[in-house]
Amino acid sequence: MSQIVVPTLGHRLQSIPRSWQRLTALCIAAPAGLIVLACIGMLTWSYATARIRAPHDEQHVLELQEKARTDAAFASELADEQAMQTEFRQQRAAKDARITLMLLLASTAFVASMKWLVSLRDRFVPLQSQFVQLRLPPRAPAAAGSRSSALRRPESGEVSAIDLSHVDRIVAEIGRSAEAAIPILQAIQSIYRYLPDDALHRVCELTEITPAQIAGTSSFYKQLRRTPIGEHFVRVCHGTACHVAGARQVTDELRRHLEIPEGADTDTQQRFTLDEVACLGCCSLAPVLMIDEHTSGRLTSLSAYDALQTFLTEQAS
C-alpha cells in the first residue's frame, strides 16, 4: 500500500522555536479559559437570579390580577408589570444566547490551545529532524596509529586508484601458489577492509590463482566481502534470544533510519554497515548490537538509534 505523506500542522510548526509556540499557546489558552469561566459564571448567575425572581414576579402578577378584578385602576399597572416582565425575559434570553455563543467559541479556543500545549510537552516519538543530527555529527579525526586509522577505508577519491603496492608486498610474503588464496585475500581485506576489484585483478596477474578461484573463494566465505564497508560496522545479533526479543524489528528500524537501500548493507553516506550475526554471547542483554567494539543491549526499535547516537557522540568527544 503506498503511503501518501501529508505534512501535518505540527510538522510545519517545527520551524518555530518551542518556547515561542508555548508562549503563543499560553497567551491564547489563559484568556480563553478566563472567558470560559466568566461565561459559565454569568450563565449561572443569570439562571439563579431568574429562578429566585420568578416566584416573586408570579406572585406579584397574581396579586395585581386579583386587585384588577375588583378595581379597574389596577389594570394599567398590571399591563405595565406584565410588559416589564416580558421585556426582562426577552432581554435575558437574548443575553444568554450571546454568552452561550461566546462560551462555545472561547471553549473551542481553549481546548485547541491546550491541545497545542500538550503536544509540545510530550512529543515522544522522535521526529525525523532529530535523526539528522545522528547521521551528520562532526567526523571524528582518527587517532594516529590506532586500529581504525590503520584499517581506514580508502576515501572515495582513492577508490579508483588504490595503492596496489600492498598487494605486491603481501604476495611476496605469502606466496604465489593456489593454496595461498585464502591468506592473501584475508591480508588484503585487513588492509582495505574489503576486497577491491583492482587488488583482486593484481593478485591474478601476480599469482597462479585464477579469477574463477578468487570469485569462488571470496563469495563463499562470509568473512570476505567485495563491496566497500562503512566507517562503522554494526552487528545486530540474530541469535535465538535476540530473535525472540525483537532483533528483526531492531534491524528493520535501523535500516529504515539509516536509509540503507534495498539489497545493500551500507548506507549511502558510507557511515554504517549493518550485519546480522548469529550470536554475540550476551543473551541476557537481548536484543543486542555491537557498533565496532561497543556493545549495546536491552534495545527496542526506538532505542536502537539512541545507541548509535550515543556511540557517535562518544566518538566525537
Partner: peptide
C-alpha cells in the same frame, strides 16, 4: 507517520 519514508519490509 508523516514525513517518515517507508521501507518495504520484503528487503529486510
Amino acid at each position: 507517520g508523516p514525513m517518515v519514508p517507508t521501507v518495504r519490509s520484503e528487503a529486510a
